[in-house]
């Protein structure tokens, strides 16, 4: 699915969190939002999902404006959201968590079944009856993505997918994102881990204080030492 975000503003109370953010993601493209804590990455994803209200600008999915829709309607249109804190339903089993995410297949988006998803994340298969609260951090992250895939999304929003994962799991996560891209999914993810972003993303947007300050292919961004030093790295 194609996402177009045009000049959106968002506020938390009186504080402006997004200031005229514009970006686009094409079909089957993986796009990274880069920037430090508080730059507006998560807020951008939540605005697209409909969890944060935008005050100005438009958000469109395949050319259809979705700004006025509630989160559940956006999800049923094909947006899948994996929050930074995973937000697994702690009292529900793995299978029940997947059930909550289940939606009918949608024309034009890859159709998932529980079997296909468990093939993507084989570590979850033996845990079907385990409650969410008894999963490790990595298992929770996989379940969070798996749960969202049950809704057959065309656009996947991943908030900090590599955060808090062991290096081996970071690599597995990168493989999973590559597999989803190969299925034709559009992925918009936020990342602080530049190496992970460079590995999975085609293009990137650098955010600072709620604005897009730089964009380009990942190769272009990585070559721009100045932008990286100013907006991404800690002390160069």
């Amino acid at each position: 699915m194609r996402l177009t975000v045009d000049a959106i503003d968002a506020y938390y109370g009186g504080a402006r969190a997004l200031d005229g953010v514009s970006l686009a993601a094409g079909v089957g493209e993986v796009v990274a939002l880069l920037g430090r804590n508080g730059a507006g990455k998560s807020t951008t994803l939540k605005s697209v999902m409909g969890l944060v209200a935008t005050r100005a600008g438009t958000i469109a999915l395949d050319g259809v404006a979705i700004g006025g829709l509630a989160a559940n309607a956006r999800a049923r249109m094909g947006i899948g959201y994996v929050p930074e804190e995973r937000r697994i339903f702690a009292g529900l089993t793995v299978a029940e968590n997947l059930e909550v995410g289940r939606q009918p297949p949608r024309p034009g988006a890859p159709a998932w079944t529980e079997a296909r998803i468990l093939a993507l994340f084989p570590a979850l298969a033996p845990l079907r009856h385990r409650p969410g609260e008894r999963l490790s951090g990595g298992e929770q992250q996989m379940l969070a993505i798996a749960r969202t895939l049950m809704g057959n999304p065309g656009l996947l929003l991943l908030d900090e997918p590599s955060e808090g994962l062991a290096p081996l799991l970071v690599a597995a996560m990168a493989d999973a994102v590559a597999r989803l891209k190969a299925e034709g999914l559009t992925v918009l993810l936020s990342e602080q881990n530049l190496r992970f972003a460079a590995r999975v993303a085609d293009r990137g947007y650098v955010l600072a204080r709620g604005r897009v300050v730089r964009d380009g292919t990942m190769a272009e961004l990585l070559a721009d030492r100045d932008a990286i030093g100013r907006h991404l790295s800690i002390g160069g």
Partner: peptide, 15 residues
Amino acid sequence: RAATADREMTAALGV
């Protein structure tokens, strides 16, 4: 039960 635990996340999953 999902909505009891986390209303917003349940909505974000299309419910």
